[in-house]
Structures are given as structure tokens and as C-alpha cells.
């Protein structure tokens, strides 16, 4: 983590109705975000289970964001 070039892999679960729409809008406005961020659209952030967060960590992400 002390590596200044470290770019974390972040998995974001984004609610279709707000956070995903916001990310979509950001794309439309040509606002860049780090390439280490990967987005999964979910029908509602309440849909995200603990097991899915753990699954992401098991497969090597550095952080998980639930946005909704």
C-alpha cells in the first residue's frame, strides 16, 4: 500500500436507480474514473449479500463499494 503507483482494484455494486445512473451520467459527461474501479449494476443496493462481498475479496479485490 506504500507504493505510490498502487492502484487498488475496487468493485462497486451500484443501484440501478441512483448510483449506476450517476456513473452513467458521469460517462456521458466524459468524466474519467480510475481503471481499477469495476461496476456491477444491481436492481437495489439492498440486493447485495455479505457472501458476494466476501466472494469479491476472495477473488482479489482490494475494496468493495456498495452505492445506492
Amino acid at each position: 500500500m506504500s507504493d505510490p503507483n498502487f492502484e487498488p482494484k475496487i468493485l462497486a455494486f451500484c443501484c440501478r436507480h441512483c448510483a449506476y445512473a450517476a456513473a452513467d451520467l458521469a460517462g456521458g459527461m466524459r468524466i474519467p474514473y480510475p481503471t481499477g474501479l469495476r461496476i456491477i449494476e444491481v436492481p437495489c443496493s439492498g440486493r447485495v449479500e455479505v457472501t458476494e462481498v466476501l466472494h469479491a475479496f476472495e477473488h482479489g479485490v482490494d475494496g468493495v463499494m456498495v452505492a445506492g
Binding site: 457472501t51 475479496f57 476472495e58
Partner: peptide
Amino acid sequence: EKEVGILASQLRM
């Protein structure tokens, strides 16, 4: 089933 999934994941990590 849910607790099994969570614990199994914790054990693996």
C-alpha cells in the same frame, strides 16, 4: 446456508 457461505469464505481467506 447463508452462514455456511460466509464462514466458508472466511475460512478460505
